[in-house]
């Protein structure tokens, strides 16, 4: 689910709303923040935590030792899938897949890079065993979405020839059913949100008291 308010910057943003704003303004800003944070924070957490994905390399050569890899450079906000480039010259695939936690729509943004010439490595997504090509030329990017059934495996794939440099697929803004759902925070998230709101309201009250005292003194 959402990790928005675990992020220090967001937390600072929340508590920086000072008492000069009205409570309505405060709540409105929080709501807007939550809405906007949906795009920035959709990520590989919860059911789709990076560790819940499976990395698998295949090669048409039995002696090959493919070296595809995957990583999340930003604690789950995005995932980078790097295709194998073992040097064998043998065609193969590097997959990063997970099971859908629920039926619904998977959506994400992607960008593709490679030092190899266009067409020698191909990046795309997997739905079951069906592969859909997204990019084969360095610099290509876009968005993609598709429907999954509950329990169905899906993910990302690099199709490669294990030479000339790997294909690299970066995926961000990832949302999937039963995973990141912006309108329905998890209980833990709600608790933290409540704490945050409490802090802000308390500061608001303190601020008001100071104002009131000032008025009194004046």
């Amino acid at each position: 689910m959402k990790i928005t308010i675990y992020r220090p910057q967001h937390f600072r943003n929340l508590i920086s709303l000072n008492g000069r704003r009205s409570g309505l303004h405060l709540l409105g800003a929080l709501a807007i923040g939550l809405l906007f944070s949906h795009h920035a924070d959709a990520s590989f957490v919860g059911s789709y935590a990076f560790n819940n994905f499976t990395l698998k390399d295949t090669s048409t050569c039995g002696l090959d030792t493919p070296n595809g890899s995957a990583a999340t450079p930003d604690n789950g906000l995005s995932v980078v899938l790097t295709g194998s480039d073992s040097g064998s010259g043998c065609p193969g695939t590097t997959d990063l897949t997970a099971a859908a936690a629920a039926a619904g729509t998977v959506a994400f943004q992607y960008s593709y890079s490679s030092t190899d010439l266009p067409g020698n490595d191909i990046a795309g997504y997997l739905l079951g065993t069906a592969f859909t090509k997204l990019a084969d030329t360095s610099g290509q990017s876009g968005t993609a979405s598709f429907a999954v059934a509950s329990g169905q495996r899906f993910g990302f794939r690099i199709v490669q020839d294990n030479q000339g440099g790997p294909g690299i697929l970066s995926v961000s803004g990832f949302t999937a059913p039963g995973g990141s759902a912006p309108a329905v925070p998890e209980p833990g998230t709600l608790s933290l949100l409540a704490v945050s709101l409490g802090v802000v309201v308390a500061k608001q009250l303190v601020s008001r008291n100071r104002v009131n005292k000032a008025v009194t003194v004046a």
Partner: peptide, 12 residues
């Protein structure tokens, strides 16, 4: 050790 030589085209 652990790396692979060129295997396509009958090995190279």
């Amino acid at each position: 050790p652990g790396a692979v030589s060129f295997l396509a085209n009958g090995g190279g």
